[in-house]
Design a protein around this nucleic acid. Structure first.
Lengths: 114, 114
DNA sequence: CGAATACTTAGGTATTGACCTAAATGACTT
DNA sequence: AAGTCATTTAGGTCAATACCTAAGTATTCG
């Protein structure tokens, strides 16, 4: 069996390599076989399929056998999950900044009122 | 000198570790010193500061010396950059799906019209 | 069936990454 | 100036990752 719902760390880890990032970009244009995906890279095939394994374990791609080839496809759900996670951090930080600024404004007002 | 504008791979790599992800989460609540950040982790300090170094090289945090302590702070710009990159992939994929569905619909219509 | 195609499996090397301890620095405190 | 606190530097271990070559399996084609 492939894996459970992959951790967000695994997703980010999968995206932390230029080869794998390029594969994700390529798959934006639609599903593709392993060898078509591998063609642009100056890398032995077993090394390349290892990268595909990382992407698949991270849930970023799915694949199915089709005859003697294997077709890979992007899973936009995983992209969205990573995106949402980052947005949550950023929003939390921005909310804190807002609170801080409100607090500062109140302090200044109180100082004026003394 | 610290570094140039960090690559998106470096950013994702920095986010691919549970310790570092927890640091990012902690820094959402505001700036903090190295030892305050380190306190929750069962890890020697030099190991922990190595993680901070990875986050800083990736542009996810910035730090300044303050007396004998070092204060770290989140850089939401880097979060946003990573978020935008993921969104771009996802949107490209979704646009492709739309085109594909439009194409399918047209094919069906033409078949009916034969 | 035999040859070609599309991958996968097996197994090895070299670099990187995550941790550690011990010792050094730099900055306040008394 | 001596002591303490916050962090860094130095240097070493162990496991994981990124690659490789060679050989195997599965599928299609002639």
């Amino acid at each position: 069996m492939p894996n459970q719902t992959p951790s967000i760390e695994a997703t980010f880890g999968a995206l932390s390599d230029p080869t794998r990032l390029a594969v994700v970009a390529a798959l934006c244009n639609g599903p593709s076989t392993v060898s078509d995906l591998a063609a642009p890279f100056d890398m032995a095939l077993p090394s390349f399929t290892q990268h595909l394994g990382v992407l698949e374990n991270a849930g970023l791609i799915v694949s199915r056998r089709q005859g003697r080839a294997r077709v890979c496809e992007l899973n936009p759900g995983a992209l969205r999950a990573a995106e949402d996670r980052l947005a949550a951090y950023r929003l939390e930080w921005e909310a804190r900044l807002d609170r801080f600024e409100t607090h500062l404004a109140k302090m200044q007002k109180e100082t004026r009122d003394d």
